[in-house]
């Protein structure tokens, strides 16, 4: 077969491009560790979360270097997150466990790559690591009803020892600045 030399060049360039796409993703997963939410989360009864770990949502230490936060995303608030912020430690593995009792919601930590879908009856598990104390906003990015535009929350990253001491003293909630008024459409 007689292939024109320009075509040979073009085939070579496109092969390099495809290999480059794959290589960059492998780099992202292996070197940086950036993955997506898997299907490891268990299922829960969306109609009744009271007997699950989401009955009293919030954060706790799973081990010395692992902080787990259970968050319920519901119309139209994050519990915790909206009325009081989610307080997490810096430089620590933080696992968010998310579920919804009503409809599909989004959990996007604004300005970061932490972005997950919250599905009724399913626990979404997203693990991350915040490298310095700061404050992030959280928004719901899946239309969930009439008050969707008001569904927002806050994550406050504090130094690890600060949170550890506060957890021991039971004063973790006081670490965060006031989150402000609950958005409109919340439970009256």
């Amino acid at each position: 077969m007689d292939i024109h030399r320009y075509e040979k060049i073009w085939i070579g360039v496109s092969l390099v491009f495809i290999v480059g796409l794959m290589a960059s993703i492998v780099y992202g997963v292996v070197a940086v560790g950036a993955t997506t939410v898997g299907d490891s989360g268990e299922t829960v009864a969306a109609n009744d979360l009271s007997n699950t770990t989401f009955g009293d949502p919030g954060g706790h230490w799973a081990s010395d270097d692992h902080y787990v936060v259970n968050v319920v995303a519901q119309q139209f608030q994050f519990r915790p997150g909206t009325r009081e912020p989610v307080v997490v430690p810096a430089n620590t593995t933080v696992t968010f466990r998310l579920t919804s009792p009503d409809v599909v919601h989004g959990f996007e930590v604004v300005g970061t790559s932490v972005n997950a879908m919250v599905i009724p009856g399913q626990v979404t598990v997203a693990t991350t690591r915040f490298d310095r104390p700061t404050t992030y906003g959280v928004v719901c990015n899946e239309y969930c009803g009439a008050g969707h535009q008001n569904m927002e929350g806050q994550i406050v990253v504090v130094p690890r020892e600060t949170l550890r001491n506060a957890s021991a003293n039971g004063t973790a909630a006081s670490l965060a600045p006031p989150a402000g008024d609950a958005p409109d459409g919340g439970v009256a």
């Binding site: 790559s113 991350t128 915040f130």
Partner: peptide, 8 residues
């Protein structure tokens, strides 16, 4: 990749 933190 430039906008951390990521889901790990």
């Amino acid at each position: 990749l430039g906008r951390g933190p990521h889901i790990l």
